[in-house]
Nucleic acid binder design. Structure first.
Length: 287
DNA sequence: ATGGGTACCTGTCTGC
DNA sequence: TGCAGACAGGTACCCA
């Protein structure tokens, strides 16, 4: 589910509330995508720092404010580092003062002195992983392959053109891959391609510079509009307050097979590319 | 290097 | 109503 807008909306909904909290307990449920990578007990006593986002990952900085001179304490607690979180296909985070007993899909609780951050993830494609730092260890390994942030000024039509002109994949796949620009999953890749008037099956090496410029603008504005509307709630996305998103209500193509295009009235088509559904308007979007 | 397929896991919906 | 099968927002990894 969660693409960049949902992850960003989640971050904004709890990041500043949890900052400064002290971890008092950690509860783990069923295994997630990867093992936590640290004894949960070693997180107790650490203090939560800034919550940041890279692509669809969230980084929860955790620091120790014990005196480093105390060897005994250093053994007890982990040194500074953080948790890298991913919501996978079905994950959501809640941050509440009082948590209910964990349900069958609640697989991680970070209990602090001011509230509990809980990951709920029915499909368990999500992850919570310890890393010594954002630029080392596991986080580095996972994040270093990611493309540029869509809101970064270096993401523009010229750079997009340069990145895809030698590749012979369908443009939809190039967007989805995340190696060029991060953040657009299936919904927003479809919506951005509609906004740019590009058929999702168009080969990336055949796109002109002008169309790449339109596409870069479309990716950025589509993701920004979704963030502003609180993300998309297709089934179960909620921010950390439990609020649903509303972007799905104004989707132009995603999930609208057979419905009239909001621009020209033509029936929206659905095709499968690399085992993923793509929706598009055959009249408004050209190869 | 590139691109294609597989894998992870469970809930929900569709059609017979 | 029951049940098999398709399908779902992500992405790392393996192989040709």
């Amino acid at each position: 589910m969660p693409e960049l807008p949902e992850v960003e909306v989640t971050r904004r909904s709890f990041g500043n509330r949890i900052e400064g909290a002290r971890v008092s307990a950690v509860r783990t449920g069923k295994p997630l995508r990867w093992p936590l990578g640290i004894d949960p007990q070693r997180l107790v006593g650490l203090r939560v720092g800034t919550v940041s986002r890279r692509g669809k990952y969230l980084w929860l900085a955790l620091t120790s404010d014990e005196h480093p001179s105390s060897a005994a304490l250093a053994e007890q607690h982990a040194a500074s580092g953080g948790l890298l979180l991913h919501l996978g296909m079905s994950g959501s985070l809640a941050f509440v003062e009082q948590v209910s007993p964990p349900g069958p899909h609640d697989h991680f609780d970070l209990v602090t002195d001011i509230g509990t951050l809980r990951l709920t993830d029915p499909r368990r494609f999500g992850a919570v992983v310890w890393s010594e730092g954002l630029y080392e260890g596991t986080a580095l390994r996972l994040l270093s392959k990611l493309g540029v942030e869509p809101f970064d000024p270096t993401f523009n039509g010229d750079n997009l053109y340069a990145a895809i002109k030698s590749r012979r994949v369908a443009i939809k796949g190039a967007l989805l891959g995340g190696g060029i620009v991060v953040g657009a999953g299936n919904i927003y890749a479809c919506e951005a391609l509609f906004a740019a008037g590009i058929d999702p099956r168009a080969r990336s090496d055949r796109l002109s510079l002008a169309r790449c410029r339109r596409l870069a603008d479309a990716v950025r504005s589509t993701l920004q509009a979704a963030v502003d509307l609180g993300g998309s709630t297709l089934r179960d996305f909620r921010d950390s307050h439990g609020m649903a998103g509303e972007y799905q209500l104004q989707a132009h193509v995603y999930g609208r097979e057979g419905a009239p295009c909001r621009t020209c009235g033509t029936s929206i088509r659905r095709v499968v590319q690399a085992q993923r559904a793509s929706y598009f308007c055959p009249k408004c979007q050209k190869r």
